[in-house]
Design a protein around this nucleic acid. Sequence first.
RNA 1: GGCCCCAUGGUCAAGCGGUUAAGACAUCGCCCUUUCACGGCGGUAACAGGAGUUCGAUUCUCCUUGGGGUCACCA
Length: 484
Amino acid sequence: MSNKVRTRFAPSPTGFMHVGNLRTGLYAYLFAKKNDGTFILRIEDTDQERYVEGAVDVIYSTLKKAGIDHDEGPDKDGGYGPYIQSERKAMYMEYAKELVKRGAAYYCFCSKERLEGLTDENGVRKYDKHCLSLDEEEVQRRIKAGEPYVIRLNVPAEGVSEYDDMVFGHIAVNNADMEDNILIKSDGMPTYNFANVVDDHSMDITHVIRGVEYLSSTPKYNLIYDGFGWERPKYMHLSPIMKDATRKLSKRYGDANFEDFVAKGYLPKAIVNYIALLGWNPKDNKEKMSMDELIAEFSVDGISKSPSIFDETKMRWLNSEYIKELSEEEFLALATPYFDRSKIKGKYDYRKLAALLHKRTEILGEIPEKVDFLEEFRAFDTDMFFHKKMKVTKELALNVLKASEEVLSGEDNWTNERLQELVGVIAERCNVKGGQVFLPLRLALTASPVSPGGATEMADLLGKEESMRRLRFSIDLLEKDTEL
RNA sequence: GGCCCCAUGGUCAAGCGGUUAAGACAUCGCCCUUUCACGGCGGUAACAGGAGUUCGAUUCUCCUUGGGGUCACCA
């Protein structure tokens, strides 16, 4: 047993990784790295009911994408294996027997019927230690006779169990409020409660980092450690991430999985950065942080005790910050699959498009809707041309567009730079300000109040032929409208 | 229902007895290479309520209210 910090992340292979769960793993990782410790991955697959095929691979790939590297795990033996709970089955019964010997646990033969009879008016049931009084001889006789049995924890009938949590502080629970939980089920398999303690101890876990749902049952875990005479680990319980004030963010809502966010166009780094900030904040208020910075800044006193509501809007912002710092090449590479998924697949200059979109993209997933207008030009509401601040009216817009048609139709050097110059010419001819040309022109070409670029950039992208076609179309539309 | 825990703007949150109660996101307004966006600047907005303790409470104590968790042969 060394003094080195050892933390673990013990997910169940039940499908995609939920961000709340990932955050727990992240904190365990950050704490270990911050303290020069070891971070261990353990797969808790004892619940065959919930087991999902391929889910173990999801755990690996999620951790890899998130940049969370485990030092030990099923694929990285550190001498504390096996790291998959189902492969550890054999050891638990022996440990349980040891605990019985030490008087901290006992055999129980009570029938389901008898147990149900113990239910009180609130529907709450607490085992009455009925089998605790059985003597050794009778126990052995009944086991030999093949009677089914479980092994229960022997919680003291009186007194208080307490411990100090690293984030919640002192926690005290009356022993009388705790039940003699089952450690070994009648099928000989351990319950989670027991397996967890045995695993943590045999893997030398020094700091147990997990969700608050275990806060009040931790005294029970401690009773097991005490029963064996093992040193208790330190505990760090984490408040949940909520969907809103009353609902926990959970798999059931289907929108909280790491993979789902990646699919929507969030960069893994941004997701990790955001969830790191949910429930924890560094002393200096820094928000955008790399994994190395997170490790350097991480501290337990920055962890908050109250639940945090997941705010996707803020994560979008953080994601846009990460996108902006990408190089043009990197952005083009990331955007290309989204171009291919949009209506403009295979058309237009992706590089040019990417350059325009780069600073205007919060999440990659919104790229298709931002470029679809290139292929979807149709009748629109001409009220868009009315702009009070720019002093643009439909009439003015019509004049400008007509002049634009004349000027632009004779131009063969169709580049952004040249078009900029021509806007000046048009403005002069109509005796209006430049902005009064840019605005109507941009609207005429895109049929949309917001576009991924200015008027000339849009014209450049569309090419002369298509630009002229749209210009004509918009003029017709406006003429028809202003006549009425 | 018993027990454990939590409580600062719409959201994340700083604050650890004396502050004009930070900052970020969102929102609103203004500015900007005359249009979109980016960017810059600024505004609106909070200590759940009530008793104490104290010269003085957002900060400490208690109660109320609200919320979360937990009471399994699930993890």
